[in-house]
């Protein structure tokens, strides 16, 4: 049984509509996000991903089509957009660029205060949000957010959205511009939010390797439309299409496809290094009777 939390139906959106610079960004998009899942949206720059997620919480209003959150059309009269924005927490790309308060705690408290929580509730929400993203409240709450390291700033910014206790967390390229260490930390954080704290998560990503490891479902966008949808395993079967869209597949998936093209069809559907290992190792050991001595050379 499914519990749809965000439902986008036949949405069209054009930037600068009615001017010579008009650019259609979404052309009849249908997407639904189910409660409790971890979905990744992939697509090259300009494919409409960022425009789509700004429809999820009513930052953009569709030219036509509907967006429903929790079963209610968010553009119907009487719907308070602020409630929608609380339910659907949206973390922008480079979210640390939105920090503005004098202290970390005050910055994270911005959203809860806007939502009219009492001071005790605000304080509680801030502490909880910091705990969830592994920031030490006592050590950091009174520091200026501008003094922190890049990775810490980003986590403060994510905490600033989590403090609203959203039902869905939407992150636009949360690892953009980070070094590999920082990327792993943020990805681990997101996995934890999903697994331990039960968040529904929508992730926009450019890394096929990352989404293969993390996402339960992929939504592929190209030219303002959803062109593929399914588990990473299903989606990555369409290597040629994905390459044509400027996306590609994880290296190991490509490896298996190349091997198959050379007449060595080991296994389809390999998307991680571990799977490739399990597939290839027995085959390679089998043929290597004589080659044993070369190991480690």
């Amino acid at each position: 049984m499914s519990d749809t939390i965000i439902q986008v139906r036949n949405v069209y959106y054009t930037y600068m509509r009615g001017t010579p610079l008009a650019r259609q960004a979404l052309a009849g998009v249908n997407v639904s996000i189910e409660r409790g899942e971890l979905v990744a949206i992939i697509g090259r720059t300009g494919s409409g991903k960022s425009t789509l997620i700004q429809h999820f919480n009513g930052l953009l209003k569709p030219d036509s089509g509907t967006v429903a959150v929790g079963g209610r059309d968010i553009w119907r009269k009487g719907v308070v957009l602020r409630d929608i924005r609380r339910k659907v927490g949206l973390v922008f790309q480079y979210p640390e660029h939105q920090l503005f308060e004098e202290t970390v705690a005050a910055d994270i408290a911005f959203a809860p205060r806007n939502l009219g929580m009492s001071e005790t509730e605000v304080d509680e929400a801030v502490r909880e949000a910091m705990r969830v993203v592994d920031l030490d409240y006592d050590a950091l709450c009174d520091r200026s957010p501008f003094e922190l390291s890049g990775g810490q700033k980003r986590r403060v910014a994510i905490a600033g959205v989590l403090a609203m206790r959203p039902e869905v967390l939407v992150l636009d390229e949360p690892t953009a511009g980070m070094d590999p260490r920082g990327r792993e930390e943020v990805l681990a954080e997101i996995r934890q939010l999903h697994e331990t704290h039960g968040y529904t998560i929508v992730l926009v990503s450019h890394s096929m390797e990352d989404v293969a490891r993390f996402a339960e479902r992929l939504i592929v966008m190209d030219g303002g439309a959803v062109v593929m949808e399914g588990s990473p395993r299903e989606v990555f079967r369409n290597r040629d299409d994905l390459v044509r869209m400027g996306l590609g597949v994880p290296q190991v998936t490509g490896l298996m496809a190349e091997l198959a093209a050379r007449g060595l069809p080991y296994a389809e559907d390999v998307i991680t290094v571990e799977e490739a290992m399990h597939t290839l190792l027995p085959a390679l050991l089998r043929v290597s009777g004589r080659g044993e001595g070369e190991v480690g050379a």
């Binding site: 290992m277 290839l280 190792l281 050991l285 290597s288 080659g291 190991v295």
Partner: peptide, 8 residues
Amino acid sequence: ELRAAGAP
């Protein structure tokens, strides 16, 4: 990984 596990 393959080499470590003995693949030549």
